[in-house]
């Protein structure tokens, strides 16, 4: 059986699938994701329209075993909500060991889970896979980075949670001058503005070459909230074309790290 396994395109084991599960739920705003097993680690990507692209990245050192055949591309489309439900099959109160198997192109992804506290039960899942559409490349090599901020994730989440949901648009103003960071939302008759100076404890680092004012759909920005809730810090990078990149770091108890990444396209003024 082992020989056969080494022919498999991809196999991996983890002591607990819990963190992976919460990371997947954080990017679960579409039904399907592109699953990529790279040599460095696992990456799942979800896209909404051509405006938001979110990825979950799990470096290989998070796994107790991680094997990807070097001569093939392991990339397929899979239903991410089914995957998340399977990872959670024994409930969030239970730590379950996880094994993943992908035999070859077109095979289903096989998961085997065993709870750590109960020894007479196990679950096996077969989730069908499809050929992946290519992943949109939103980065533009020709643009430069205008601003980069590092913020504490929980505090940033608190700010976003406070924004009025009924507003469609969020305006982000970044400037080397005080107040360095401003988030503005417009309601029916009112306007709200949150000012965050770079001296704030929330801001771990701040770099801004020149003042920019950018508009985003509030709904898109809110998509990062689930990921923020499980992360420790977020790096916000703004390109000269307005593309916003938010990189979130999730740190587990064993000091291993997982990441999520969000590209958000700005609203262009007519």
């Amino acid at each position: 059986m082992d020989d056969e396994m080494s022919e498999y395109y991809f196999t991996a084991s983890m002591d607990s699938g819990k963190t992976l599960c919460s990371l997947l739920k954080a990017i679960q705003f579409q039904e399907f994701a592109v699953f990529c097993a790279l040599a460095e680690g696992l990456k799942l990507t979800v896209e909404e329209g051509k405006c938001v692209q979110a990825s979950a990245y799990v470096p290989a050192d998070n796994f107790t075993e991680y094997h990807v055949r070097s001569d093939v591309d392991v990339m397929f489309k899979i239903n991410i909500s089914v995957l998340a439900e399977c990872l959670n099959i024994f409930g969030s109160g239970e730590e379950s060991s996880l094994k993943m198997y992908y035999r070859c192109e077109g095979s289903p992804l096989i998961l085997v889970l065993q709870p750590q506290s109960v020894h007479n039960v196990m679950t096996d899942c077969e989730i069908s896979t499809q050929t992946a559409d290519s992943v949109l490349e939103l980065r533009d090599e020709d643009t430069s980075e205008v601003a980069k901020l590092v913020l504490k994730a929980p505090a940033f989440l608190g700010l976003l949670a406070d924004l009025e949901r009924s507003c469609d648009i969020m305006e982000l103003k970044l400037s080397p001058e005080h107040p360095n960071i401003s988030i503005i939302t417009y309601g029916m008759q009112d306007r709200s503005c949150i000012d965050m100076p770079k001296s704030s404890e929330m801001v771990q680092s701040f770099n801004c070459t020149h003042a920019v004012t950018l508009k985003y759909q509030l709904h898109h920005i809110r998509l990062i909230m689930k990921a923020l809730a499980v992360s420790t810090k977020v790096v916000v990078r703004c390109s000269s074309n307005g593309l916003l990149l938010l990189q979130l770091k999730l740190e587990k108890e064993d000091q291993r790290q997982m990441f999520s990444e969000f590209y958000i396209v700005p609203l262009l003024d007519d």
């Binding site: 009112d190 503005c193 949150i194 000012d195 001296s199």
Partner: peptide, 22 residues
């Protein structure tokens, strides 16, 4: 013609709400 509520919060954050007077 607005009533302005300005909250000075921890960590240097300032939240300002410009509320229209009906």
């Amino acid at each position: 013609c607005k009533l302005i509520f300005q909250l000075r919060c921890k960590h240097g954050i300032v939240k300002t709400h410009f509320v229209s007077i009906l």
